[in-house]
Write a protein that binds this DNA or RNA. Structure first.
Lengths: 225, 225
DNA sequence: ACAAAAGTGTTGTACCTACACCCATGG
DNA sequence: CCATGGGTGTAGGTACAACACTTTTGT
């Protein structure tokens, strides 16, 4: 006891977004230990001695999805003293974006995990529903500045797919023509020579990110007061 | 030991912004205990058993400034295992906005605290400089949506004062005429019948917030993708 | 041929920027 | 009477929403 102050359990919980069948989905799974064992919850874990909270979150992400090096960002701290039942646990929520088309789906089933549409979530334990709400807000903010689709869509995608993703994120529709023009004007996508025949008779060109890393926090939508 | 996981010291640190003499300032004070006793640091404290992190931050704020019910928002968690020297402490940073014209200045001096211009900070302990950087970014984001001046300026203020505040926050200039029109078009200010004679021969009308609480997260600058 | 999505063009409106220009007054 | 900041007006440009229109091709 170095300081005369209490110590606390510190956990991380991950709001993992995916995109499937035109819907924004969330990875949830049945909690594997007490309290509330069996109830739906966000993947989480405890922060260990020699890791930062972010590192703990990446560890959890790796364990539950098999994925590393994916986009992740802090949402907020949840620290109400009574937010869990058995003991006081302070939790840092993170949100992450993954490509659901990946191979690792069997690994998910192994834990009983499920991709659940964001608009139709079951009841979650503790304050996890609040975490999801906050995370969705953060995601919307993020997506309104950066062209975030990279992390959620496959390598190659059509502009219509990107639009549908944005419609899922913002829960509203975008004009197809205007959306296309706006996105292309950003100069962040490069057209491939391939076409996607699904989705229309004509076929739509596939695009990929040209990801000039340089323009991370891009200059679109600046202060503008 | 309910869980087989380590517990951690949990602290809060407050980035307290004020506005004086046309400059954005930060409240810093000499640390009162080891390690690094005497070095400049942000006001902080430890989270106790029965309080949330936010409540702890408000407690610290009250203790150092005497103020309650002021605007405050979470910045981020700082949890690198080695961020402090003597022990591992995870800290949640908050930023707050206060009116520096208030009475409570003697209380500050009592602790040796100082209002220091944001552009000319001394070296701060640990990762406190990083906290300030992150907090300033959050403040800019916040200010670009909401008319944040309320919390930093006196009850009544001129539009020029508000503009200078925004210039201090964004570290750039705004066209006086355009700024005035933009701000007034929001319909959030009400003109008083008083004039401020300082600052110009003509005198400038003083304004106050009409604060219809309803439009908290106002509709200005929505998704707009 | 025609439905349906891909993709392009047009037009009006809102807003932002830059800057010109009056107003009031203390020195 | 003039320099200074307060305050208003105007012209050009950009960006976006709404929507008409053309293209391509599977059925």
């Amino acid at each position: 006891m170095l300081y005369k102050h209490p110590k606390h359990y510190l956990a991380v919980d991950c709001v993992i977004f995916g995109y499937q069948d035109g819907e924004l989905k969330l990875l949830i799974y049945p909690r594997s230990f007490e309290p509330a064992k069996g109830s739906w919850s966000l993947p989480g874990g405890f922060v260990q001695e020699s890791e930062s909270a972010e590192k703990a979150a990446r560890r959890v992400l790796k364990k539950t999805t098999g994925l590393e090096d994916i986009f992740m960002e802090e949402v907020a701290v949840f620290s109400e003293p009574d937010r869990e039942e058995l003991a006081r646990v302070v939790s840092v929520a993170y949100y992450a974006l993954v490509r659901t088309d990946d191979y690792h789906l069997e690994q998910l089933k192994h834990f009983g995990a499920e991709w659940c549409p964001i608009v139709d979530l079951p009841e979650l334990i503790f304050d996890h529903a609040k975490m999801v709400q906050s995370a969705l807000l953060k995601l919307q903010q993020k997506a309104s500045f950066d062209l975030i689709g990279a992390a959620l869509l496959p390598e190659l995608f059509t502009l219509t797919e990107l639009r549908c993703l944005y419609e899922a994120i913002f829960q509203r529709e975008f004009d197809p023509g205007n959306f296309r023009k706006k996105i292309l004007s950003l100069g962040l996508l490069k057209k491939s020579d391939k076409k996607d025949p699904k989705g229309s008779k004509k076929g739509a060109f596939l695009y990929a990110y040209s990801e000039k890393k340089s323009e991370e926090t891009s200059k679109e939508r600046i202060v503008k007061l």
